[in-house]
Design a protein around this nucleic acid. Structure first.
Length: 521
DNA sequence: AAGATTGCCAACCGCCAATCA
DNA sequence: GTGATTGGCGGTTGGCAATCT
């Protein structure tokens, strides 16, 4: 949408542009020294002014642009325009396949760190990369395709495995992570105080955070952590990034590491069996996973159910909610665990927090404004449903701690329903649950409203989706893909799925990578 | 053909950290 | 030391064009 107002202004010779710019600044908004600041698309004349200014004075001091050139734009807008469009070193062509590949790799490594990604892609801007990623994600999610190609996930896996091997626990000082090229995690210095808030609430990889939406997690953060339960304590917990900015919302992701720890503890037996088995053991259920027999349920069941629970929107008949497609990176969220100013709790204490959420800390006052709402609702629900504990999951042997913790909060019948789906290796409900979770974006309504929503979820709205929604190796009904796309978008899914693994037990053809991933990798 | 949907992209907004006065 | 300013970042919005129904 390049400059819609282009037609109304020709290129104006540089020099004596100020008055023109001021005249053009008709839009409302703030007032600068030259009058009202213009918003909206930039004109060629404005570009010329900005270009001239930067040529003369260099970058920086952007507010002076408006002051001295007469450009009726705020400094911020000028900086953005320069950085995204006028910089001479920009590459305006479409992303090359190599660049796309690089972006995927970088995102697997960094998450939504667009600026950092842009720094590694010469001539590309963070905005460009962000837009590319968001549209790409949207497209792939709609198509029910995973975000990350398997090799990247495995790459991340291997790297982080190496990282674990190489890293030493002595890196508590937080230095190692910048020194080690392998360890790509960024662990910010954040407060531990919110730890209890998210325990029990969020399964790995997709975390719903009120006011923040779903958090996605770079593949590297997901996969490797899960391989060993000790990983969290070694790599996630101690590392502190001294310079990482702490955003309010980024202090909100504490429970994840423990969930990882717990969730993968029971799968650690696979750790020596190679990635494939380990990944399968993670239990990120793929409806097409032919290995999803009851033998594997121990690890494959929980997360989707968690999704369903957390989503609070188990029914596909629910009105569609805004889908959060891209999410803050885990590496910052996980960092919530560790702060120089807040001693890292032992995992035991973490578990204590998980199992016995301190209710006093759940008072609204202890929640950040962004954190209230869904969290409150889920915590409340968790407590009120605690009576179901131990009764419903015991028939599911091998359910990991984290899994059980979440599952325990489900009514028994819901367990049954969910598990029936997972017992059926080709049931579409397996991933539909995940999609339910993904489709729930909390609107920061009141606690009551969310509670009600959750209640509805738990109580009655578990509705099986039609069996015919199973896509025929992604050639099936689009609706099914749409409604179930989320799990395929998750890097964890692709690791667990057989899309790049051996043929499943049921003789279904494995998904060929080139078909599965498309050709655009 | 017309309306709806999707893709794409530019720009804005809010937040935060660093710097400055 | 403190408040204001600046710059940077990530998320979101809005509009146009292309495609679909």
């Amino acid at each position: 949408m390049s400059m819609t107002s282009e037609s109304e202004d020709g290129m104006v010779p540089t020099g004596a542009l100020g008055s023109l710019a001021i005249e053009e600044a008709g839009g409302g908004g703030n007032f600068g020294v030259n009058g009202p600041l213009k918003k909206g698309p930039w004109t060629s004349a404005e570009d010329a002014i900005l270009l001239e200014y930067v040529t003369k004075h260099g970058e920086g001091n952007w507010n002076a642009v408006q002051k001295y050139s007469g450009l009726a734009r705020c400094g911020k807008s000028c900086r953005l325009r320069w950085a995204n469009h006028l910089r001479p070193d920009l590459r305006k062509c479409a992303f090359t396949p190599e660049e796309e590949r690089h972006i995927i790799e970088l995102h697997a490594k960094m998450g939504n760190k667009w600026a950092r990604m842009a720094a590694e892609l010469p001539g590309r801007t963070d905005n460009e990369i962000k837009n590319y990623w968001n549209t790409r994600i949207k497209r792939r999610q709609r198509a029910g395709l995973p975000i990350y190609p398997p090799d990247i996930c495995l790459q991340a896996l291997n790297k982080n495995k190496q990282s674990e091997d190489m890293s030493s626990f002595s890196s508590v000082d937080g230095q190692h992570h910048d020194l080690s090229p392998i360890n790509s995690f960024e662990i910010p210095a954040v407060e531990f105080k919110n730890l209890e808030l998210t325990h029990q609430l969020y399964p790995p990889t997709l975390l719903e955070v009120p006011g923040r939406g779903l958090l996605d997690i770079p593949a590297s953060s997901l996969i490797a952590q899960g391989l060993h339960s000790s990983y969290c304590s070694k790599t996630l917990l101690p590392a502190v990034h001294p310079t990482k900015r702490l955003r309010q919302s980024e202090s909100f992701f504490p429970g994840l590491a423990t969930n990882f720890t717990n969730a993968f503890t029971n799968c650690s037996k696979y750790q020596n069996d190679g990635p494939a088995q380990a990944l399968q053991s993670f239990g990120y259920t793929c409806a097409y996973d032919q290995d999803l027999t009851t033998d594997h349920q121990s690890c494959s069941c929980v997360l989707p159910s968690c999704h369903a629970l957390l989503n609070g929107n188990p029914s596909s008949s629910e009105p569609p909610r805004a889908m959060k497609q891209e999410l803050p990176s885990l590496q910052t969220q996980i960092g919530s665990w560790c702060s120089p100013s807040s001693p890292l709790p032992s995992l035991e204490s973490v578990d204590t927090l998980i199992q016995s959420p301190p209710t006093e800390n759940m008072q609204s006052g202890s929640l950040s404004p962004r954190n209230s709402g869904l969290l409150d609702a889920v915590l409340y629900e968790s407590q009120s449903l605690n009576n179901f504990k131990n009764s419903s999951c015991q028939h599911m042997s091998g359910v990991s701690t984290a899994e059980g913790e979440v599952m325990d909060n489900l009514p028994h019948d819901l367990h049954e329903i969910e598990w029936e789906a997972y017992g059926d290796p080709i049931s579409p409900r397996g991933h539909s649950a995940a999609s339910m979770f993904s489709e729930y974006t909390p609107i920061s309504g009141g606690l009551l409203e969310e509670h009600q929503s959750l209640e509805t979820t738990l109580g009655s709205k578990v509705k099986p989706e039609a069996e015919d929604m199973i896509p025929d190796e992604f050639g099936g009904k689009d609706d099914a893909l749409n409604s179930n796309h989320m799990i395929f978008s998750r890097p964890d899914f692709l690791l667990a799925s057989n899309c790049f693994g051996p043929k499943g037990d049921h003789g279904k053809e494995p998904l060929h990578a080139e078909r599965y991933w498309g050709t655009s990798w």
